[in-house]
Design a protein around this nucleic acid. Structure first.
Lengths: 177, 177
DNA sequence: GTCTATAGTGGGATAGAC
DNA sequence: GTCTATCCCACTATAGAC
């Protein structure tokens, strides 16, 4: 594992800022270069292509999500919580991270995951807290589908204006407890 | 309500074919015109812009989804089924339609819904079977989120290769029964 | 490692003649 | 309602000089 050059780290950090502020479509090689005070072609000395840059951003997002999920469980204290308590905590942490970082969340969860370009084991590491709490993989997948569905539908403005999304989340958490 | 011209109907039908075969990105005004044996600018005599064309396709998809959901319930016979039975039937019909028409499903469920350009009441009509079966709107939203999450994650290849998705669906259906 | 220049691709949309 | 001609935009990526 070689350390990334500081220059590359700066590029990724700036790309993340643009992603947060302007979404995936706003993240162009030109915009990124301009913000770094360089020309777009120069970026290709640091990154093979745009897909590689996106993969780096996805990896960052997955690491942050995994950290957020673990922090949610840590907040419950040292004793092993009831499953419903744990699922509720994970759901809360999941939703909170996604709403705080909608564009990185989309990048990391929509479309095909570039598994070839991600660190080995990262995807599983991110999901591990949920798998552990759910008890088995089938339930974990169902809970994840519920959480992702609620999140992406909320981000896309799919629920009616007056919808009580807290209540819908509670229904799902209760169902899977 | 004026009837659409037969020409417009043909344009939408051809657009649907391209969408089914090549996805949203494959549906360009040029490709559509070529398939119709005309030039791209001519399309603008029938449609204001590409967004309007997409809205027509979304409306078609919503009508088909609503029809498919109703057919799923009709298949259960004249007697009022138990909720779990009804939810299972809706889930099966929902997933089947989406897998049979992945690109129209994506178009109709991903991103912002152009409500201004859709027939009034269509969105609610599509969702009505689920709302009725669920009993209340919070549960309906939770079930929809689960179904959409399962569907879109499956379409995006997000589950591991060996995942038993039938089992995950069953878990969700059972949870919401 | 940065630059300039530019290739190559693709897209949505309009003007005006017929 | 269709055509031709065309504009404008934006993007990724490469070549070669410095």
């Amino acid at each position: 594992m070689s350390q990334p050059s500081p220059r590359l780290a700066a590029i990724v950090a700036t790309a993340r800022t643009i992603l947060e502020n302007h979404g995936r479509e706003g993240l162009t090689m030109r915009a990124l270069a301009a913000r770094l005070g360089m020309q777009a072609p120069s970026l290709y000395k640091h990154v093979a292509d745009k897909d590689e840059l996106e993969a780096l951003l996805i990896a960052d997002a997955l690491r942050e999500m995994g950290t957020a999920l673990r922090a949610s469980l840590d907040g419950l204290g040292p004793r092993r919580p009831a499953r419903r308590t744990a699922v509720a905590a994970l759901a809360k942490g999941y939703r909170a991270w996604a709403l705080a970082h909608p564009h990185p969340y989309r990048l990391a969860t929509e479309g095909t995951l570039p598994r070839d370009r991600l660190p080995v084991g990262l995807e599983a590491w991110t999901a591990a807290p949920l798998v552990e709490v759910a008890g088995d993989e089938d339930r974990a997948r169902a809970i994840w589908a519920f959480a992702h569905g609620m999140t992406i539908l909320e981000l896309d403005g799919r629920f009616p204006g007056g919808a009580d999304l807290d209540a819908a989340w509670d229904r799902g958490v209760a169902a899977f407890a």
